[in-house]
Design a protein around this nucleic acid. Structure first.
Length: 426
RNA sequence: GUGGGUGUAGCUCAGUAGGUUAGAGCGUCUGGUUGUGGCCCAGAAGGUCGACGGUUCAAAUCCGUUCACUCACCCCA
């Protein structure tokens, strides 16, 4: 009985892993350029960190958390998202007193117990940012600009940025109540999902795709018309900054996010090359979360990409990323056991000077060894067989030009030097 | 949690009016005269046909159960 990876988890083997490396490498470079420092938090936390921050009756907390008791009976949860852990770290280390503004990025696995489907796994990977310490609308726009530029950098060129505002905590609550009172009389006419949404999370009714529900939704007041003057101005400024940076976006009055802590600006980036789960990433502002977690009043905004989904799109758009383009500089054949040890020293010496060298360990036929060299995409092959040893020479074959050079052998070191010279010359 | 689809070689898949030793392409390995790769040619290895049970003289094929994968709903990255 073989053991397989658990449902919703998977292995990333070469050459597919090259895409992941590429995405992460470009993220580190660009996010660093924008002034974000990497933060790494633990993969598991106390359960109440998430129940408190994300919200008791959100889907994530009510049915998707990997929660278990540790050996001392404490309730532990594998992180379903990174914002709460980052805020926890921010407070634990009192980073607000180290610097008024903190910009972080993170890369790592998250866990949600869901039925897997295209673009959704139980262990999935996010790469995201958090800016803590300001409620200036510029930072909402910067988050979106960074996300947008990152996609451009890695070659995902036509994403759609959807944006909306839910206003401050007060207007968010008031608007929810408004929807409830307007729709309650017709509750029984809505779809089953909307009936429960209306009670648990009324804003969600807005993005129901059910055609019959849409009839009722279109007559509802609009979120953006019911914002407080301050929230309205905040949102207008975010849009103004986006315009000034030429970041394209679509205002989507029905966009709602599933986590309780979002306030003001929320956004989502979708892409048509994905399946039904078409969001590459999303985020928004969360001005009350830090305070709710017993920290000082702190404006904050963040977003996250699903790396799994970025990779899915890149597999389609840039399949060349998943090929091993690296050439081997030098492959040393194994024809005479008497010189094998000398060759072990040679490979090591070459590698120490930064050359990509490798050695054949099996005493196979010359044809087989050349086939191996070819598969490894070797530029040079070192040949020391019976003939060379008798004549006291060694041969270097250039695989690209298919010509061979025979050089007289004096000692190990000159062999190394001559080989190195040939390799570096190219 | 709910619903649909699919399980045959390492990969992509053929293979039903149930009937001999279950196939192809790619990949892997070995050869194609004495020591040379890619192209070409030849050959080999590799499968308890997802698992279990049933019908039948006979099951990859029909029936039942189960597991896995997959897509979608809910929701999210």
């Amino acid at each position: 009985m073989t053991i397989n990876a658990l449902r919703g988890t998977y292995d990333i083997c070469p050459p597919a892993s090259y895409i992941w490396e590429y995405v992460e490498q470009e993220a580190r470079r660009l996010f660093g350029q924008f002034g974000y420092g990497e933060i790494r938090t633990p993969i598991f936390e106390e359960t109440r960190l998430f129940t408190r921050s994300i919200g008791e009756n959100t889907d994530i907390v009510s049915k998707e958390m990997y929660t278990f008791a540790d050996r001392k009976g404490r309730s532990i949860t594998l992180r379903p998202e990174a914002t709460a852990p980052v805020v926890r770290a921010f407070l634990q280390h009192k980073l607000y007193s180290v610097s008024p503004l903190n910009k972080f990025f993170y890369i790592g696995p998250m866990f949600r117990y869901e039925r897997p489907q295209a673009g959704r796994n139980r262990q999935f990977y996010q790469l995201g940012t958090e800016i803590l310490g300001s409620n200036h609308p510029y930072y909402d726009a910067e988050s979106i600009a960074l996300a947008h530029q990152f996609l451009c950098v890695i070659g995902i060129n036509n994403p759609t940025v959807k944006i909306n505002s839910v206003g401050d905590l007060e207007s968010k609550k008031l608007f929810g109540k408004m929807i409830q009172t307007k729709l309650m009389p017709q509750q029984s006419l809505l779809c089953a999902d909307c009936q429960t949404r209306l009670e648990k999370n009324p804003l969600r009714v807005l993005d129901c795709k059910n055609p019959s529900c849409k009839e009722y939704i279109k007559d509802l007041p609009r979120l953006t018309d019911n914002l407080s003057p301050a929230s309205k101005e905040h949102f207008a400024q975010v849009l103004r900054f986006l315009d000034s940076m030429n970041i394209p976006y679509v205002i989507d009055n029905c966009l709602v996010r599933g986590l309780d802590y979002y306030t003001e600006t929320i956004f989502e980036i979708v892409h048509s090359n994905l399946g039904s789960q078409d969001a590459l990433g999303g985020g928004g502002r969360y001005n009350n979360l830090v305070e709710e977690m017993e920290g000082p009043s702190t404006g904050a905004v963040g977003f996250a990409f699903g790396i799994d989904r970025l990779v899915m799109v890149l597999e389609q758009l840039r399949p060349e990323l998943a090929t091993d383009r690296q050439q081997l500089d030098c492959y040393i054949l194994n024809l005479e056991p008497s010189v094998f040890t000398e060759h072990v020293a040679l490979v090591h010496k070459l590698r120490k000077t930064g050359i990509r060298a490798d050695i054949c360990t099996e005493e196979k036929s010359m044809k087989a060894q050349f086939r191996a060299a070819n598969k490894l995409n070797a530029r040079f092959v070192v040949i020391r067989g019976k003939e060379e040893i008798e004549k006291n020479i060694f041969s270097i074959k250039n695989m690209n030009e298919a010509n061979e050079e025979k050089i007289s052998y004096t000692d190990e070191n000159t062999l190394f030097e001559i080989l190195r010279e040939r390799i570096i010359k190219l």
